[in-house]
């Protein structure tokens, strides 16, 4: 489904954030990207979201080179991916409900469908009673659950989570990881970038380890080893 083919991203003259990386993520997989800060995890995700283009090599999504998607079609492409970030990136002037509904609204969904789906997904993340709260009225864990609900709402092919537990306490961390595992169990591909050892070791899923922009390990049931 997603293939990095000899992909490199070089900033400036010779700072390689990603150095000739190749791997494939199959549909329905749960893949964790691990590595120290600066190992290249976030750059990989940015390339996948077409926030940046690779300096060399390719990133393929369903066999399509995403660098070749015309700019007018990038919003459509991004709707196939749900994103979750460490700092939640919620819209501060919208309620939890509106943050989730926003994605469906930009896609042109009908009002009735939006009401039904948003309520459903808020129930899934157990936030129905907080639906009318603004982000500044929610705890870190709640904010992240809203972000996950937003990433899920339009049933994307893949969910990309960049350090989603970085700002959370251990209790909420487990909560979020469980939620991501549940979503994966429902058939959605999940790519999780993290440097949280406990999270990786408990998951027992595929782990790709990055160091200095290179893939140094790719194991089916990996552990956090650096």
């Amino acid at each position: 489904m997603i293939r990095f083919e000899n992909t490199s991203k070089i900033y400036g003259k010779d700072t390689a954030a990603i150095d000739r990386v190749s791997f494939e993520v199959k549909k329905g997989e749960f893949v964790s990207l691990v590595g120290k800060s600066g190992a290249g995890k976030t750059t990989l995700l940015r390339l996948l979201l077409r926030e940046e283009d690779p300096t060399s090599g390719k990133v393929l999504f369903d066999d399509q080179d995403i660098a070749e998607i015309p700019s007018g079609f990038i919003p459509d492409f991004r709707r196939r991916i749900g994103t979750v970030f460490q700092d939640y990136k919620l819209l501060p002037m919208k309620t939890a409900y509106e943050n989730v509904a926003y994605v469906m609204e930009v896609m042109g969904a009908r009002g009735g469908d939006i009401d039904r789906d948003v309520s459903e997904v808020l129930k899934l993340v157990e936030l129905m009673e907080r639906a009318e709260h603004f982000p500044n009225q929610l705890s870190g864990g709640e904010k992240q659950r809203v972000a996950i609900a937003r990433a899920l709402i339009h049933r994307p092919d893949v969910i990309v989570a960049d350090e989603p537990t970085g700002n959370l306490d251990p209790y909420h961390t487990q909560d979020i990881i469980k939620l991501l595992a549940t979503i994966n169990g429902l058939g959605t591909t999940v790519i999780l970038a993290t440097h949280d050892k406990d999270v990786i070791n408990r998951l027992g899923k595929r782990v790709i380890t990055l160091d200095d922009g290179k893939v140094i390990r790719d194991e089916e049931r990996g552990k956090f080893i650096l």
């Binding site: 919003p75 459509d76 994103t83 994605v103 930009v106 896609m107 339009h154």
Partner: peptide
């Protein structure tokens, strides 16, 4: 916020 809107496909 604009960055977020772009990332969710607006």
């Amino acid at each position: 916020e604009i960055e977020v809107m772009r990332l969710v496909g607006a």
